[in-house]
């Protein structure tokens, strides 16, 4: 098991692993079993993933408790304070990241905007995940005609350029939150379908499925109770990455005016609004963009880590190859 740090974290300095040991020791008496788990140790000794997870936790908490966290009302306009630069103290309060073209606090708007951006990210990934996994399970389990049809449809969707397809559908359906979820579900399910179909195809030949069938399990029960749990691990990994790409797609669509519409606000929409004033007020476009960048980045990094530790094949590759075959040789 992953007793050592994983992947590029494999060379983490001694100080890092010392730190991990310290954490284990300090918390050891509280949750002894959990903290001694190799996975948890690998997680704690890997500072990039740890930092990403912490950042995500902070962002999610901030968006849930936005009214308590945000220093200002995100839609309250202070027209006399338009384009206040960052770190401006006024009698209306302190503007950490400045104010936008209507004198609204950029920091508070980022916090409130995270609600829409994150909700869409999770909802889009969830919707496509549910559709994709369902179709993947069905097509991998039953094979034959059903599989042929579903696989052809997947191929077809994969052949289309995604953003153009999304633009087309949004153009027809009209912009807005609900339609964006529909669009992301249409655009993203193929990925999940391919993965879960592949896993199902190999699982259904395993002896434990035969045993289940012999003792009289129905197809539905076999799929739900025996195959689905095995599919979930790779699907969750893809899901973390997909949340990042949905957040990016949301910002792109909102920026183009095809996504979230005012008075609602998302990070992408903030960028669209700030774009016209980029010369006057750089902070209105810089900070929402950074929010998108860091959120998407941390989702991606967490996904890489999940993939590395959850897949025995990959784990072997990540841990062993760099150590043995590579750093010792001259290459």
């Amino acid at each position: 098991m992953a007793r050592h740090p994983v992947s590029w974290e494999s060379t983490s300095s001694k100080a890092m692993s010392d730190q991990a040991v310290k954490v284990t020791k300090r918390r050891g008496f509280m949750l002894p079993a959990l903290w001694r788990k190799p996975l948890v140790q690998a997680f704690l000794s890997d500072w990039i993933t740890l930092a990403s997870a912490l950042f995500l936790a902070i962002i999610i908490l901030a968006s849930v408790f936005a009214p308590g966290v945000a220093p200002h009302n995100p839609i309250k306009q202070h027209l006399d304070l338009r384009f206040s630069p960052p770190f401006t103290a006024t009698n209306a309060g302190y503007f950490v990241l400045g104010a936008d073209h209507l004198g609204r606090d950029v920091f508070s708007r980022i916090i409130y905007g995270s609600r829409i951006s994150l909700t869409l990210g999770f909802a889009g990934a969830l919707a496509s995940g549910v559709i994709g996994v369902f179709l993947g399970l069905v097509s991998g389990y039953f094979k034959g005609k059903v599989d042929d049809v579903i696989s052809r449809i997947v191929d077809l969707f994969m052949a289309f350029p995604a953003l153009l397809l999304l633009l087309m559908v949004l153009y027809v359906l009209g912009p807005g939150f609900r339609n964006m979820i529909i669009v992301f579900a249409i655009g993203g399910w193929t990925l999940y379908c391919r993965i879960s179909r592949g896993v199902t195809l190999s699982l259904r030949e395993q002896p434990f499925i035969d045993s289940a069938r012999v003792i009289g399990c129905t197809d539905g029960r076999i799929i739900v109770r025996h195959i689905l749990p095995n599919v979930l691990s790779p699907v969750l990994t893809i899901g973390a990455m997909h949340v990042a790409s949905v957040i990016l797609a949301e910002s792109t669509l909102s920026f183009l005016g095809m996504g979230i519409q005012p008075p609602e606000s998302s990070w992408g929409l903030m960028l669209a609004e700030g774009r016209d004033y980029i010369v006057l007020a750089w902070w209105t476009v810089t900070f929402p963009g950074l929010a998108i960048l860091f959120t998407a980045l941390t989702f991606n990094l967490v996904s890489v880590w999940l993939r590395a530790v959850s897949d025995p094949l990959q784990r072997w590759r990540y841990m062993k190859l760099p150590k043995k075959a590579l750093t010792r040789g001259s290459l």
Binding site: F255, I278, T286, L297, F299
Partner: peptide, 13 residues
């Protein structure tokens, strides 16, 4: 992980 249009805006800026 960076929105392309944002990089564009930053480069313009």
């Amino acid at each position: 992980s960076t929105p392309e249009f944002w990089i564009g805006l930053m480069l313009i800026l």
